[in-house]
């Protein structure tokens, strides 16, 4: 069936099967391989994309069920440069396989945060759906904190 799908600001008219997941459409139909599949069961967050401004697992979402514009890691390359740089500076990745999902999930959090609303616990809990087997998470949370501070989203009373 035909589907109208806007991904990273670009409108695509594509043919999909009713059972195709958003993940398979992104990777196989549109060639956007930045979004990864690690479990295919909605349990690890590696396939996280934004639907509108919501972080969702694209492996558990049928493409025909997508009700908003989609943003993938490729769509955040420029707009989230500061977040990417924070991941680099804080060493928030090792193998990098989960990193697309981590960054998309973190951007969803930062996007919806109000000034000085974030702290370590909020960030840590928010990142709980994104498994990373390499880093042990500390440096991922460091990276999100670094970016949040730069964007003025970090609660002041919290010491670094």
């Amino acid at each position: 069936m035909e589907l109208d799908l806007t991904v990273n600001g670009e409108r695509h008219q594509i043919v999909v099967a009713p059972g195709d997941t958003l993940l398979s459409v992104l990777r196989n139909t549109l060639g956007l391989t930045g979004t990864k599949e690690s479990c295919g069961r909605g349990e690890c967050g590696a396939c996280t994309v934004l639907m509108g401004n919501k972080p969702v697992m694209s492996c558990m979402l049928l493409a025909v069920e997508v009700g908003a514009d989609v943003t993938t890691i490729e769509g955040l390359t420029d707009t989230s440069l500061d977040l990417r740089e924070s991941f680099a500076q804080a060493y928030g990745f090792q193998c990098g396989f989960c990193t697309s999902g981590q960054i998309v999930r973190a951007e969803a959090l930062l996007m919806r945060a109000t000034p000085e609303s974030l702290n370590r616990q909020i960030v840590t809990e928010a990142m709980g759906g994104n498994i990373c087997r390499c880093t042990g998470y500390t440096q991922i949370v460091d990276a999100v904190e670094l970016c949040a501070r730069r964007r003025g989203l970090w609660a002041n009373e919290d010491t670094p």
């Binding site: 391989t33 930045g34 490729e74 991941f87 990098g96 697309s100």
Partner: peptide
């Protein structure tokens, strides 16, 4: 900073199945 940070944080790095594209 990690030598590969640009590729790893933008989804550009190609893992095995990504090579199919």
């Amino acid at each position: 900073w990690p030598q590969d940070w640009r590729d790893k944080t933008s989804g550009v790095s190609r893992f095995t199945l990504d090579q199919l594209a």
